[in-house]
Design a protein around this nucleic acid. Structure first.
Lengths: 194, 194, 194, 194
DNA sequence: GATGAATGAGCTTTCATTCAT
DNA sequence: CATGAATGAAAGCTCATTCAT
């Protein structure tokens, strides 16, 4: 009984978050308003405010979810690459990881990174994730490469930025995105050998 | 008389655009409203609507100005580099150009690229500029480099994205931004030699 | 069984009314909402509506309780003063009665008399109580005093209003409230002798 | 021209305040909402917020107006009674003053004193006015009366409370209100002679 | 043209009340 | 009967835009 109630409540929460994410992805931040969210979620505005103190809180959950996904991808990569020092393997995993991260729901991704008001705390969380990624890569590169901190920064920022541009920004490319990714991998590998 | 009126009109237009740009840079997109713009520009709301059909049009001019600046930088680079085929020189100019472009008014730059709702038309204009940059670079690289189109794409997107991240995003770096830029230059040069 | 159910129902009703009264006294009328009442009473909103048709009905019970207390005070005074015609004793009992009535839960008293929307019916009930008090006093005064109706009106309204002002309104006084009450008693006694 | 514009603006402000006061007097505080105020004032909601930061601010103006009126009545009485020490004259003026104050717009008066949320600052202002009235009366009584502070408090609070009850509360009276006032005057005069 | 008062659609949020479980 | 999730009318407020002066 209790369970059933909680399940119902959870379903409402999920529906609201999902509705907000869909509107955000399809129509952009200006189109995200509480009435639209409620309508799309198939609930009433009142229910939205039953579970979220205000509109921003819904967005926060979406951003959280997004960041958590990225953090988990990093953690998974870190554990599956534990002990690996082969620079080629590391670069390939890096690029592949960022590609995977950006392949999922690119419209939402774009809205989140270029329309939505991001709080300082959220910005800090993004930066912390970036820093952690760089640190992990730097540690793995250290045995074989000079200036690992600098190189890791360049690698991570380049891989992230290119993946973003090619997969999110709907930009024209002379090759399919995956072939471009291979090319980027080649460039980054070459850089590590210098 | 006609002359004087036109001069006055232009002054108003400029004041409005400048006011909007300053509010955008200092307080972000949510703070940009027509009353604030008019107050800051020292004119009445009525006058704003005398020269702009709606609020978006003001933003459009700001974006235009921004793009025009980039286009001029590109045109200047193109003419000063006319005939140059030395890949090292080209890469250095490319990175230096993007750095220069991002050094100017970074707060405004950030607001424009991560808060403001950008119309499809504007997106198209950004893409056109990118395409033109890639084409020019590809043509210059063509004599000495295989797959010039692919390589130019990689070079332009990387240089642009890294400049953006390092100069606009207020991100932590192991070296000063100009030293990071040198490192990026090194990477891109190496890539062209492969 | 029936007995137990009724006892339980009464307990719920009491808890709800008491919760509403406490919120009203502590946080004022704007803070009184059905969810807060239910939470404070330790029951669900649903249960509140099981026993009260609407929010106003809860307030009505509080007002009722308040008026009943006043009526009982009046009845007690009437019976204990039955046959008393000494005007001094009557005035002292009158003032003491109103003081006692206002000493109890002054915050609630204030909220009830200056925040809460009072219905015409409730106003009528207050007026009926006032009229009854005046009538009883007038009857007691009749043997010894001319114009007993007018004098009783003046006495009752003055005693009530001053007790209210001095005990409820948190107003600055040159003497403690009980000393002020003695002074008022003196004034009213003097008036009856005129 | 400037003047005309300001006149128009002032007319809007006045219409809004007046509309709010009328709704408050006729239908009570719960009926006072910004849309109703705007409709009644013959302006749009936007205009209301052009001149008032929020709904409370409108109410504040009404309360201010009310208090200012009372303060002016006090000031006028003080100056016209300067030097008067005849207690009979003083009491008559006191009662007449409170009657006059309560005769005006009694429905509004009632709403203001028993429905509307009053801020601590406003309460303080009311208390300050009461204190000032008491002080002025005490000073005038001082030559002829013992305990002038205590007696002035009793006189002021009684006159105010009775005027309020008889003129505002729509309460049943054995005589017309003005005759009741004479009776109250008689009582208060008697008290001063004791 | 310039002004700024006025407009009102539309947004966020609250809360008395209902009803499926 | 009890529960508490769900409802939705209604309120406060904002701001792009209009228009009388």
């Amino acid at each position: 009984m209790r369970q059933a109630q909680q399940a119902r409540a959870k379903a409402t929460v999920d529906a609201v978050v999902e509705a907000a994410a869909r509107i955000l992805a399809e129509a952009g931040w200006p189109a995200v308003n509480t009435n639209a969210i409620a309508r799309r979620a198939g609930v009433s505005v009142g229910s939205v405010y039953e579970y979220f103190p205000n509109k921003q809180a819904i967005l926060d959950v979406i951003i959280d979810r997004h960041l958590t996904e990225a953090e988990e991808t990093l953690a998974a990569a870190a554990s599956s690459l534990a002990g690996v020092t082969d620079t080629g393997v590391l670069v390939e995993a890096l690029v592949a990881g960022f590609v995977r991260l950006h392949e999922n729901d690119p419209r939402l991704h774009r809205a989140l990174s270029s329309e939505v008001p991001v709080s300082p705390a959220q910005r800090a969380r993004v930066e912390a994730l970036r820093k952690r990624t760089i640190s992990l890569l730097a540690a793995a590169l250290a045995p074989n490469v000079s200036d690992p901190g600098i190189r890791a920064t360049l690698l991570v920022d380049t891989a992230d930025a290119l993946a973003h541009r090619w997969l999110i920004d709907e930009v024209g490319l002379p090759l399919p995105a995956d072939r471009m990714a291979s090319e980027a991998t080649k460039m980054l590998k070459g850089y590590l050998l210098s």
